[in-house]
């Protein structure tokens, strides 16, 4: 199977997306006003801790001032990574083709 693994990955992503869509429909139907689903797990853990009365003793030196700026830095992080991966795979591939 030349592309067996690719097929497995594609199938897993489709199943993952389908589960999300079904789950999302169920969650949105039961959501109260002003509530938001699909928050981050990190934040949920922080909520549990804060519910016990704990106050964080240090706050971040710099926080992205808005959701847009935050997504800018997340996209930048992914873009830097993707660039490096694409560059070296392309480089190796081109080199192999040239050699043969």
């Amino acid at each position: 199977m030349k592309y067996g693994l690719e097929l497995v990955v594609a199938a897993a992503i489709i199943i993952f997306a389908a589960i999300f869509l079904v789950q999302n429909a169920a969650i949105q139907a039961n959501l109260g006003e002003g509530e938001e689903a699909w928050g981050g797990a990190d934040g949920n853990a922080a909520e549990i801790i804060e519910a016990s009365g704990y106050e964080p003793w240090f706050s971040p030196l710099w926080e992205p001032p808005s959701g847009e700026i935050e997504s800018l830095f997340f996209s930048l992080q992914a873009a830097i990574g993707a660039l490096v991966i694409g560059y070296f795979f392309g480089y190796y591939r081109g080199k192999n083709e040239h050699a043969s």
């Binding site: 981050g40 797990a41 997340f74 992080q77 992914a78 830097i80 990574g81 490096v84 991966i85």
Partner: peptide, 18 residues
């Protein structure tokens, strides 16, 4: 780079959080 890309992707999961 792989750690960079994958750890920037926040994905929704079955528990209703990302």
């Amino acid at each position: 780079a792989f750690v960079f890309v994958l750890s920037s992707l926040k994905l929704p999961s079955v528990t209703g959080s990302c």
